[in-house]
Design a protein around this nucleic acid. Structure first.
Length: 499
RNA sequence: GAGCCAUUAGCUCAGUGGUAGAGCAUCGGACUUUUAAUCCGAGUGUCGCAGGUUCGAAUCCUGCAUGGCUCGCCA
């Protein structure tokens, strides 16, 4: 008998608790293990000969040979003097068979005491049962972790949405779909980097998340306090203005995949923190960026999903290039019955919105009303991947004006599944015009915290070459590619209220 | 921030005013190739929280909490 620490004495029951108290039962079992000098938490490593997926893929060669595997017990089927366990590791699941003849009485009784959720190392012979089930016949079992909480029901798993988010680790244990979704997220981001770096020669940089002034988008920032300086700072709402400084500095192909924070509400399309790919490419225009964007998305389809066709929430999607390319104004004329040329001011926009039955806040400014018409009347039609080109300058403060159509800017957005995936410009590099447009934007802003990023304007004054830039919401892309309707399904730990 | 909906056993869910239920899981027993193992037996509980109505409330009402959906802000 090993003497327990006072903490263990207090927290691990000495007597068998009520069977209803499942975690109590497990703690009681843990105490017995510790007292018998079989404390599972003492184990520091377990040498595996194979992962379960490897073992299964080489099963015929390994049959009759010894193997060592490890994983979590997902099911337990007692059978008198024999027992079956399902053992799962990261990529596979296999049956373990054990009987009293091969293990002996003592070790067989120990194995019978394991609970679903415990983590076990198993050494044994690779074999098939008489029903042909690929299995390992245990000759030695090592308890690697005692799980103190019971897992959800084996058939339905965890369906309570709140619990799935708050205890994502449990969701990952019991839901292969969840594991697969986040495995794909990791792979897609990795392939994004591989494509940009290895195939296109971009360099990734990391720019500050904490900023003295925030810009690059219109959104409410999170404010935080830098105590040492006794001053407020902001969590960035975009990466744009930082990366453009790198173009000024002479780097020609730069990108960052990073976290963005926007102090806004939560819904199926929005999480207060999300991940954005932003890239800037000197000496090219938005047509080159459009081609790059299409190539990138197709590369991800081919390398991660092995298909360019998928089931979106609003019907089947085909990412077969070339994606449709359509003028913003053509869509306006088709679905809103008006050209932006005929909506020169707020009054005209209000009249059109009313005619279209598009509701808007009575304080809404000109851009906001245009945006409302757009999202109510046009966006719902953009199911298949579509590049929408040449937006009104009024809603594109960082994009270069088109000289022979001065009310429009060199800007495109990529839509799929009726959601915006990406936003790109031929970047405005005229420091004088940029200052005017930013000042106009600030003057119209209804929310606080808007001030000119003077240092960005100074950078433009030093001279930024003609540049194309892109911003792409990673979660939005994942939703479109994986057919998910809620952004929380592609974010491991979505923001929820404190409990 | 607003509207609607949900919250019952560890998990998945029944239960519309009259003794709180099922399956899985758990506990006891049988079973040496099962696989949602099977068979026999047992116990699940602050019915989200706080009030109210009623002889009596999981059930009706009010407030609160958390979550979901829709809407507003936002990508």
């Amino acid at each position: 008998m090993t003497k327990l620490t006072p903490f263990e004495e207090d927290n691990l029951p000495a007597e068998q608790p009520s069977p209803d108290d499942q975690s109590g039962m497990r703690r009681w079992k843990l105490r017995q293990l510790k007292e018998a000098e079989r404390d599972p938490y003492r184990e520091v490593r377990y040498d595996r000969t194979h992962t379960i997926a490897e073992l299964l893929s080489k099963f015929d060669d390994l049959a009759g040979k010894k193997a060592r595997i490890a994983g979590r017990i997902m099911a337990k089927r007692g059978h008198g003097k024999a027992i079956f366990l399902d053992l799962a590791d990261q990529d596979g699941r296999i049956q373990v068979y054990a009987n009293v003849d091969t293990l002996g009485d003592e070790r067989f009784e120990q194995l019978k005491a394991v609970d679903i959720g415990d983590i076990l190392g198993v050494e044994g012979e690779v074999f098939k049962t008489r029903t042909g089930q690929q299995s390992v016949k245990a000759t030695e079992c090592t308890m690697l972790v005692k799980s103190l909480e019971p897992l959800p029901e084996k058939w339905h798993g965890l369906t309570d949405i709140e619990l799935r988010y708050r205890r994502r680790y449990v969701d990952l244990i019991v839901s292969p779909e969840t594991r697969e979704r986040f495995r794909l997220r990791s792979k897609i981001v990795a392939q994004m980097r591989r494509f940009l770096e290895d195939e296109r020669g971009f360099m990734e940089f990391e720019t500050p998340v904490l900023e003295p002034v925030c810009g690059g988008a219109t959104a409410e920032p999170f404010v935080t306090r830098w105590e040492a300086l006794d001053d407020d700072f902001y969590l960035r709402i975009a990466i744009e203005l930082r990366l453009k400084r790198l173009i000024v500095g002479g780097f020609e192909k730069v990108y960052e995949i990073g976290r963005i924070f926007r102090n806004e509400g939560v819904d199926t399309q929005h999480n207060p923190e999300f991940t954005m790919l932003e890239l800037y490419w000197a000496y090219v225009d938005y047509n080159d960026i459009m081609q790059l964007t299409e190539d990138l998305v197709v590369h991800i389809c081919d390398s991660c999903l092995a298909t360019r066709k998928m089931e979106g929430g609003k019907g089947p999607l085909s990412f077969e290039p070339p994606f449709a390319r359509v003028q913003f104004d053509d869509l306006m004329q088709e679905h809103a019955g008006v050209s932006v040329l005929d909506l020169p001011d707020r009054k005209a926009a209000v009249a059109r919105a009313k005619k279209l039955d598009v509701e808007f806040d009575k304080d809404a400014g000109y851009e906001k009303i245009l945006d409302r018409i757009w999202s109510e009347r046009i966006e719902p039609h953009l199911i298949q991947p579509t590049f929408v080109l040449d937006y009104p300058v009024a809603v594109s403060p960082l994009a270069k004006r088109i000289p022979d159509r001065p009310h429009l800017a060199y800007r495109f957005e990529l839509f799929a599944n009726a959601v915006e995936l990406a936003n790109a410009f031929s970047e405005l590099n005229d420091p004088v015009e940029q200052r005017v447009r930013m000042e106009e934007q600030i003057a119209r802003a209804t929310e606080g915290y808007r001030e000119l990023d003077e240092d960005f304007l100074r950078a433009l004054e030093y001279g930024m070459p003609p540049t194309g830039g892109l911003g792409m919401g990673i979660e939005r892309l994942l939703m479109a590619l994986l057919g998910e309707q809620s952004i929380r399904e592609v974010i491991l730990f979505p923001q929820l209220r404190k409990q």
